Amino acid sequence: MAGFADQIAAWSEKTREKLETAVRKIALDAFTEVILMSPVDTGRFRGNWQVAIGNIPTGTVEIDDKTGTATIGKVQAETLKLQAGQTIFLVNNLPYAQALEYGHSQQAPGGMVRLTAQRFTPIVDAVARELNKG
């Protein structure tokens, strides 16, 4: 029979793993929402969402991603590396990104990031419900 210290260590490890799963899922869900809400003409804007842990990406990328599939795939790969306590960034460095966020697109008149930020609590709640099922 495991001692009390072993039980606490096991509980602590399980809790850390569950927390990291939650943090990863929340980041992925929020970032996916931003990407899919991004207006699409050529796909350049949607393809320029960049994700990184611990540092803010600079520059732009030359990817046209009308569906968002490739961009979301990159986000998913990066969020799998995320650990609790780390900072993850999603940025779009195209010169017109700020204009699109502040309504210069009929496809996204309310922006993308601001609307997703308003939905952050429901995103967290949905992830918590999902993780508490199992």
Rank of each mutant, 00 (worst) to 15 (best):
M1E: 13
M1Y: 10
A2E: 09
F4S: 10
A5R: 12
A5S: 14
Q7E: 14
Q7P: 04
A10M: 06
S12Y: 02
E13N: 13
K14E: 13
T15F: 07
R16Q: 08
E17S: 10
L19W: 00
T21G: 12
A22H: 02
A22S: 15
A22C: 08
V23Y: 02
K25R: 07
K25T: 13
I26R: 07
A27T: 08
A27M: 02
L28D: 05
A30N: 00
A30W: 00
F31C: 03
F31E: 06
F31T: 10
V34H: 02
V34W: 02
V34T: 13
S38F: 04
P39D: 09
V40K: 12
D41T: 07
T42N: 04
T42H: 08
G43F: 04
F45Q: 11
R46N: 09
W49T: 05
W49D: 11
Q50W: 07
V51K: 01
A52Q: 15
A52E: 15
G54Q: 09
T60R: 13
T60P: 10
V61D: 04
V61A: 10
E62W: 01
E62K: 04
I63V: 15
D64T: 07
I72S: 01
G73N: 04
G73H: 06
G73W: 04
Q76C: 00
A77N: 02
K81V: 03
K81S: 08
L82S: 09
Q83C: 01
Q83G: 00
A84T: 12
A84N: 08
Q86N: 12
Q86M: 09
T87R: 11
V91G: 06
N92E: 04
N92M: 10
N92V: 07
N93L: 10
L94M: 15
P95E: 14
Y96A: 02
Q98K: 13
Q98P: 03
A99R: 15
L100Y: 04
L100N: 03
E101T: 03
S105C: 06
Q107K: 12
A108R: 03
A108C: 10
P109D: 08
G111D: 03
M112A: 10
A117P: 01
Q118T: 06
F120N: 01
I123E: 05
I123Q: 03
I123T: 12
A126I: 05
A126P: 06
A126Y: 02
A126D: 13
A126H: 12
V127I: 15
R129Q: 08
R129C: 00
E130Q: 11
L131R: 01
L131Q: 15
N132F: 07
N132R: 04
N132D: 13
